[in-house]
Structure formats: C-alpha cells, structure tokens
C-alpha cells in the first residue's frame, strides 16, 4: 500500500514536472501587484478567493466595477473641480484611481478598456499627468503592440502643453476603437468645442445621446446638444 502510494506520487510528480515546461504562461508575476494594489480595499479578499477558484477574469471584471463605482461616486463639487482641474492644475480627488486601475492590470494585463478609462480619467479629467503616464507605461510593458497606449501618451503630452490641434489628432485615432471608453469620446467632444469645431462636437454628442452604454453620458450629451442648438 505504502509502496503503491510512493509510486503514484513519484509518477504524478514526474508527469507534472515534464508537462510544466510546456504550460502556457498565465502572467503569475502580475498577481502580487494586483493583490498589493487592493490591500486594505474591500475587494482584496474577493480577488484572492476568485483567483483561487480559477475565476481570475471575473475578479478583474469585479475590480473594474469597483473602479466605475468609485469614480462614479461624486467626491467633489463642480466648483471644487473648477478650482483645480478647470484651471489646469492637478486635482487631489479620487486618490485611489491609480491603484484601482493597477489592480485591474494585474488581474488581466490585456483589459485595454480599463487602462484607457483609468489613464483618461487621470490625465484629462484630473490633470494628474504623471500618474496617467505611469499607468500607460506599465500597460505598454505588458502589451507593447497596442498602439493606442502610445497615442494616449502623445495626447497627454500635448494636453500638458495645451497644444489642442495635436491633442485632437491623437484622440481622433483612438475614438473609433470599440474599446474606447465613452469618457474619452466626451473629452474629445469638449476639446472640439474649445477649438471651435462645433459640428464635430455635435456629431460625437449625437452618437453619445443615441448609443452611449452609460445612461449618465446619454443624458449629458442630450443636454449638450440642446445647448449647442440654442447657441447662435
């Protein structure tokens, strides 16, 4: 009995040892980063349990929901925001935007929507260029062939220098991608307005009012369209 058990254990180990050389890489090096980023956060234990159950992607999706809820919960008044971001200064709102997005990248390095969303919010809404650049560079290390990350880096550089024509050029490249978040489309429309290109802004708001998946953006776009129509 003991001999049989020993033979069985040794055979299993040999089989596994041989096969392990061919096992596809499952990005295990990313997991400690994801767990570290969610340390102390509500979803930390949930991530661990879901990864243990083999549901790493679901853990990532839940983390994305956490990010959406976090960024969708109003932390600042309109006036606070204008005091900071409206004047081109970096805001101190939503301090967990970066760690929450890094947690998502750790769980699924190819969840491009999340990276574009997090970096877009940091750079274009909160004016925290350094954090956005850091996030995009981290994402580029894992997914170097995805050109919209590089484009976003360029767009951030131009936003920083207030070079709106170049910024528009780069955001227009990201706009048609299916994974482009509505938030970035809204940002592009607003930049069009600043640059005086009302027709282009109107077409984006029109799309948003009809087809944006988020109800808040649909309402926001309808409001913008009304303002544009009433304006001379």
């Amino acid at each position: 009995m003991r001999g049989a058990l020993a033979v069985f254990l040794v055979s299993c180990s040999l089989i596994n040892g041989w096969f392990a050389a061919f096992a596809p890489a499952d990005s295990p090096e990313e997991l400690p980063q994801a767990f570290a980023a969610s340390r102390g956060a509500v979803g930390g234990t949930r991530d661990l349990v879901l990864v243990g159950l083999g549901l790493r992607r679901l853990a990532c999706d839940m983390a994305m929901l956490d990010l959406l809820i976090y960024y969708g919960t109003q932390e600042e008044s309109q006036e606070d925001w204008h005091q900071a971001a409206g004047r081109g200064r970096a805001t101190r709102f939503y301090p967990d935007l970066l760690p929450l997005t890094r947690r998502i990248i750790g769980l699924d390095p190819y969840f491009r929507y999340a990276v574009l969303y997090g970096a877009g919010a940091l750079a274009f809404n909160e004016n925290r260029y350094g954090e956005a650049v850091f996030l995009l560079q981290e994402a580029l290390k894992r997914d170097p062939g995805y050109w919209p990350y590089s484009l976003n880096l360029s767009a951030i550089a131009y936003k920083n220098r207030k070079n709106f024509p170049e910024l528009i050029y780069f955001l227009e490249k990201v706009y048609p991608l299916p994974e482009c978040p509505t938030m970035l489309k809204n940002i592009l429309a607003n930049i069009y307005l600043r640059a005086g290109q009302k027709e282009k802004a109107r077409s984006i708001f029109h799309w948003m009012a009809q087809s944006a998946p988020e109800s808040e953006y649909r309402e926001h776009a309808k409001g913008k369209l009304k303002i544009l129509e009433s304006a001379p």
Binding site: L9, A20, A23, D26
Partner: peptide
C-alpha cells in the same frame, strides 16, 4: 510538482 497545473486550461483568462 504534485498538484495539477490548471494554467493549461486558462485560454479564457487570456481571451483579450
């Protein structure tokens, strides 16, 4: 070495 390696079955995790 002894435990099963379920990364063989992780195509869904690498979907994107």
């Amino acid at each position: 070495y002894l435990l099963p390696d379920f990364s063989f079955f992780g195509t869904a995790n690498r979907w994107e």
